[in-house]
């Protein structure tokens, strides 16, 4: 495997993730990999024993992994969430917003470009799972949200 881009405080997991099928089949693995067509919610009952969930991006244009990631974070998963495969520098900001905190790209990512892309936008319009305060909340700091 190539270099891992890490946004976490701790080191990326070193376990090799097993397939979802293997993981659900009574394995004692702590790292699992989900493919685009697989249901991330199948992992929800066991989130507390998982250290790494790797979400596979066979092609950058297949956006199912963004939903998988956000669903896992919405459910309270705090372990490592890794985007792997055809991960390109211009996708990184959106991946960060849906909760990915490590990247395992097929081809190395230009760190200088990535840092530029990640700091371009001071504000965001949506509430997702990255803790960023959307502009509507900044506009109405006194409002009771939701």
């Amino acid at each position: 495997m190539g270099e891992i881009v890490n946004f976490r405080e701790d080191a990326p997991a070193s376990e090799v993730p097993v397939s979802l099928e293997a993981f659900l089949g009574a394995s004692n693995a702590t790292a699992v990999r989900i493919e685009p067509g697989e249901d991330a919610r199948a992992l929800l009952p066991q989130l507390d024993r998982i250290a790494l969930i790797e979400v596979s991006f066979p092609a950058f244009g297949d956006g199912r992994g963004y939903s998988s990631a956000r669903i896992l974070r919405e459910a309270g998963y705090t372990g490592e969430l890794r985007a792997s495969g055809d991960v390109l520098v211009d996708q990184v900001p959106a991946m960060r917003r849906v909760g990915f905190d490590t990247l395992a790209p097929n081809a190395p990512i230009d760190r200088a470009v990535m840092d530029r892309m990640l700091t371009l936008y001071d504000d965001v319009y949506q509430k997702t799972v990255d803790g960023r305060v959307p502009v509507w909340a900044k506009r109405h700091p006194e409002a009771a949200h939701g």
Partner: peptide, 8 residues
């Protein structure tokens, strides 16, 4: 606008 989950 730039909805991260629905970009692809």
């Amino acid at each position: 606008s730039f909805h991260p989950e629905f970009s692809y």
